[in-house]
C-alpha cells in the first residue's frame, strides 16, 4: 500500500511539474526533488498534493496576468463549456423551423422563428471556429471586425433568450439554469477571445 501511495505521489508531482507556469518551474521541481528525500514516516501523498496545488495556483496567477502561459487544453475546455450549449441549440432552431412553433400568439411563422433562434445561436459555431483557430495557431487572434461581429451576436443572443424567458414567464431557476449557458457564457467567451485577440495583436506587432 505504501509503494502504491508513493507511485501516486510521484505521478502527481510529475503532473505538477508539467502544469507549472514557466517562471515557477524551478520551485515546483524543488518540491518534486524534495519528495525523494522525505522520510518514510512522512506522507508523500500529502506533499505531492501540495505541489499540485502550488502548481495550479501559480499557473492561475500567471494566466490572469498574460496570455503567454494559457495551456491549450484549458482554453479549449473553457470555449467548449461556454459555446458548446448554444451551438447545440442550433439543432433546436432547425426543429423549430421544421415544425414546432414557440410563439404562435405572436403570429410568427415557423421559418421566422427558426431564423430568430438560428441567428441567436450563430455565436456558438462562429465563436468555436474562431477559438480553435486561435488555439492552434501561433499568430492568429480574432481581428476587430470578427470581434465586433461576435459582440453583436452575443448581444442578440442575450436579447432573444431574455425575450423568450419573459414571454413564457419562466421562474428564477429556469433563468439561472438556461440563461447562463445559452446567453451569458457565450458573452464571457467572446470577452476572453477579444482579450486574447488584443494580446496576440500586440505580440505580433512587437515581434
Amino acid at each position: 500500500m505504501q509503494k502504491f501511495r508513493e507511485r501516486i505521489a510521484r505521478a502527481l508531482v510529475a503532473h505538477a511539474v508539467r502544469v507549472a507556469a514557466s517562471d515557477h518551474t524551478d520551485l515546483i521541481a524543488a518540491m518534486a526533488h524534495e519528495l525523494e528525500h522525505l522520510p518514510k514516516s512522512e506522507s508523500a501523498l500529502s506533499w505531492a498534493l501540495g505541489s499540485v496545488l502550488v502548481s495550479y495556483t501559480g499557473r492561475m496567477r500567471v494566466m490572469t496576468r498574460s496570455s503567454a502561459d494559457w495551456p491549450r487544453w484549458l482554453l479549449l475546455l473553457e470555449m467548449l463549456l461556454c459555446l458548446g450549449p448554444v451551438t447545440a441549440f442550433v439543432f433546436v432552431s432547425v426543429s423549430i423551423a421544421q415544425g414546432y412553433t414557440l410563439f404562435p400568439a405572436q403570429g410568427y411563422t415557423q421559418v421566422q422563428e427558426g431564423l430568430i433562434f438560428g441567428s441567436a445561436t450563430l455565436i456558438g459555431p462562429i465563436g468555436l471556429v474562431s477559438a480553435f483557430r486561435t488555439l492552434f495557431s501561433q499568430t492568429y487572434g480574432p481581428g476587430r471586425p470578427l470581434t465586433t461581429l461576435l459582440w453583436l451576436l452575443a448581444a442578440w443572443t442575450l436579447t432573444v433568450f431574455v425575450a423568450l424567458f419573459v414571454h413564457f414567464h419562466l421562474g428564477l431557476v429556469a433563468w439561472c439554469g438556461m440563461l447562463l449557458p445559452f446567453a451569458l457564457l457565450p458573452g464571457s467567451a467572446v470577452a476572453h477571445l477579444a482579450w486574447f485577440g488584443s494580446i496576440r495583436r500586440r505580440e505580433v506587432v512587437s515581434a
Binding site: 515557477h24 520551485l27 524543488a30 518540491m31 524534495e34 500529502s46 506533499w47 498534493l49 501540495g50 505541489s51 496545488l53 502550488v54 495556483t57 501559480g58
Partner: peptide, 11 residues
C-alpha cells in the same frame, strides 16, 4: 506548514 502553504511563501 504543509508543502502547499510553505512553497508559495518561499516563492
Amino acid at each position: 506548514l504543509k508543502s502547499g502553504t510553505l512553497y508559495p511563501i518561499l516563492m
